[in-house]
Amino acid sequence: MIRIKAGVSCGRAALVRRRCGSGYRRRRRLAGRQPLRRVLSLALPTAWGATAITYKLVCPLAQQNGLGARIVTSAVFFAVGTGLMLHVRRALQRELRVAREVAWAAQSVLLRPLPQRIDGLRVAAAQLSADRGATVGGDLYEVIATEHGVRVVMGDVRGHGIAALGTVAAVLGSFREAVHDEAELGSVLRRLERALGRHLGERARAGHPSAGLSAVLDPDSPVAEEFVTVLLLEIRGDGEMRAFNCGHPSPYLLSGGRVEVLTAGEPLPPLGPFPLPAELSAEHCGQLLPGESLLLHTDGVEDARDAHGRFFSLPTVLADAVRTQPVSPQAVLGAVLSRLSRHAGGSPTDDVALLVLRNDRHHIPQQQEPPVAHQVT
């Protein structure tokens, strides 16, 4: 049954009915083809097997013990085995292609591609999963323009790969809704904490239905060890920045060829193991002036090691990248990823997420207080 909303024209309603009807008919056709596809998938192995059995039972050459007969028999069974292996290989390739399509679809919804410009800010982002074959992992990021300013989240879920996707979905879903509803950044952080708590509670109940909430509070429970580091940032129209840092690496401020660590006061513990304080007040981080950039990252970047066990020097790479002015977010991102890939010898051992924001706004009022930043030597 199709219900037509008020204000929808009859022509549009007819179009909806036609589309729904065609989709239903297409699903019925595909469902009807499934048994036929199963039969066809078994036809080739059955034919190869029948060929081998027929040769062995009927062909007079197969009954002989001479060298020539043995060579021919070996060739026949080799051909049969090769055909079966190629058939299995094609079937596995089809399944892998479908799995990759599903993974890309999940990535487009979970970590959707960010636009190049958001409310006067140029944006570039990238994410790499440590799991081979996975396109998404345990890192998360999002940038959303709201009436309260541009709000940014960068997070890192304990663990990586497919197992962390549920937690990433819970945190990102809560952030995308809360940033529009909550005027205070601290209220957004509390919404993230509650969403994470609900998600972990559901996981605990799924693993131990009789345990309920006690499974989350039990220190020996695997769910009790889960946590998420979060950097929550707000950039207002005048460039003023406010932030909460819950156990996450501090971002880097790229200004005039300099690379500085942008601090947001005393960091809070990661979300999950400990509750947030009763009073939350966002830390002022100064202003992001026109032409200046911020780089947010997860600890998988600076924890990457080379073959000799040396850590990746992100400040050095950033210092090289900002020598060319003006600084392009895409260029900074590309420089970091290429150097990181060479340093780690290919794929990283931990999930990696990078987010670069550059202020392209033309006019910002004069800042009232200096930014809290420390230059990296």
Rank of each mutant, 00 (worst) to 15 (best):
Q107H: 05
Q107W: 02
S108F: 14
S108L: 15
S108Q: 15
S108R: 15
V109T: 14
V109D: 08
L110G: 01
L110Q: 13
L110W: 02
L110P: 06
L110D: 06
L111P: 00
L111R: 04
L111H: 03
L111V: 00
L111S: 02
L111A: 02
L111C: 03
R112K: 12
R112L: 06
P113E: 10
P113G: 09
L114M: 07
L114R: 09
L114I: 00
L114V: 00
L114W: 01
P115H: 09
P115C: 12
P115G: 10
P115Q: 13
P115R: 12
P115W: 11
P115E: 09
Q116S: 12
Q116E: 11
Q116Y: 02
Q116H: 11
R117F: 04
R117K: 11
I118A: 06
I118N: 00
I118Q: 06
I118Y: 03
I118M: 02
D119T: 04
D119M: 14
G120M: 15
G120K: 15
G120W: 14
L121G: 01
L121I: 04
L121R: 02
L121H: 13
L121A: 01
L121Y: 13
L121M: 08
R122D: 10
R122A: 12
R122Y: 06
R122T: 03
V123Q: 03
V123P: 03
A124S: 13
A124C: 10
A124L: 09
A125Q: 06
A125K: 04
A125Y: 02
A126I: 04
A126L: 06
A126R: 07
Q127E: 11
Q127T: 03
Q127D: 03
L128G: 05
L128V: 12
L128N: 07
L128P: 05
S129W: 11
S129D: 15
S129A: 15
S129M: 11
S129T: 12
A130V: 04
A130N: 08
A130G: 11
A130P: 13
D131L: 14
D131H: 14
D131I: 09
D131V: 14
R132S: 09
R132F: 13
G133W: 07
G133V: 00
G133S: 01
G133E: 01
A134G: 06
A134M: 11
A134E: 14
A134I: 04
A134S: 12
A134N: 06
T135L: 15
T135S: 08
T135E: 13
T135I: 13
T135G: 12
V136E: 00
V136P: 01
G137C: 13
G138L: 05
G138Q: 02
G138W: 05
G138M: 03
D139S: 01
D139R: 03
D139V: 00
D139A: 01
L140P: 04
L140I: 14
Y141T: 08
Y141A: 06
Y141W: 11
Y141K: 08
Y141Q: 09
Y141D: 05
E142F: 05
E142W: 07
E142Y: 01
E142N: 05
E142H: 07
E142L: 04
E142C: 02
E142D: 10
